[in-house]
Nucleic acid binder design. Structure first.
Lengths: 150, 150
DNA sequence: CGCAAGTTAATAGCGCTCAATTAATAACCA
DNA sequence: TGGTTATTAATTGAGCGCTATTAACTTGCG
């Protein structure tokens, strides 16, 4: 008698997807104490990086940059607005669109942000080259999954 | 006059951590429609992989295997218990410890699980070798971050 | 023009992740 | 033995991420 239950399934530790998942969680966890000094979470930090870089942009564009949809971005931006970092206002030309811009204190926070990459660098145990390889493979995996989802 | 605000900060798209973060989210998202056929979420699937592999184990051990703490595992296991997949009971020898074991229907679900790796394989756009490299780098990053957090 | 189709945010609800705290139990040791 | 310390789960509260739905608005087409 053949028992299908005896067939093996790979364990989490043997799966690349679990390693990816665990590494991403550990990375966000490692950012936390560093970002606490700016009172930002990791996704909020990503949004600030985009906003510090240039002018105001709408919610849709920001969401595309961060690979998030409106169910994630809207509450994220509301929490950032509640902290006084950003303003959200409807676009005059197209009332469907919501424009996000930094407040003065949001802009001012940039000064403190330069220390973040530095502090994180000390925690990262892989080389620059390994980091580049990791980035490349993550991007390739991501893009393939996104393309496949249409 | 030097304006620190003009100094550049890397954008999310340039950061390996963002690629890691986005790839992990995309991976969980890609698993969703596949795992929906078993009525499991991705973390629940990971827990089932461990449980299908062997005997009952306690919450702490399972949490260690999945790199989760009790604030994550306890509600996860309760939801799995509510679905009739597992039983949770206190260990007789050590009442602090909570033992998790599969129910019959939890064991039976294993039959359907063999299709998951297959279905996911079709969505993954990277080679086996790239996957192995990705896994290795994620593990190294993870282990380094965990070691650094002590 | 007027209505259908598309676009953009917002909302609701569920599950996950984490830090911090608490309670119960066990182990240790003076 | 009795009291301290350590271990194990559970709990709480906040934030994130997703799907599905809805509402407001714009565009395009007959």
């Amino acid at each position: 008698m053949t028992k299908t239950n005896d067939k093996p399934l790979l364990q989490p530790e043997e799966l690349a997807c679990f390693s990816l998942y665990s590494a991403a969680n550990a990375m966000v966890r490692a950012y936390r104490p560093v970002l606490d000094t700016l009172d930002l979470t990791y996704p909020q930090y990503l949004a600030m990086l985009v906003l510090w870089n240039g002018d105001a942009l709408n919610v849709k564009t920001l969401g595309e940059r961060l690979h998030m949809d409106s169910g994630t971005t809207t509450p994220l931006l509301k929490r950032m607005e509640a902290k006084g970092l950003v303003l959200r206002e409807r676009c005059k030309q197209d009332e469907r669109s919501c424009i996000v811009r930094l407040t003065q204190s949001g802009k001012a926070l940039k000064q403190q942000a330069f220390q973040i990459p530095e502090a994180m660098g000390e925690k990262i145990a892989i080389s620059q080259e390994e980091g580049a390889t990791l980035k490349h493979l993550c991007d390739k995996l991501h893009d393939g999954l996104v393309a496949h989802s249409d």
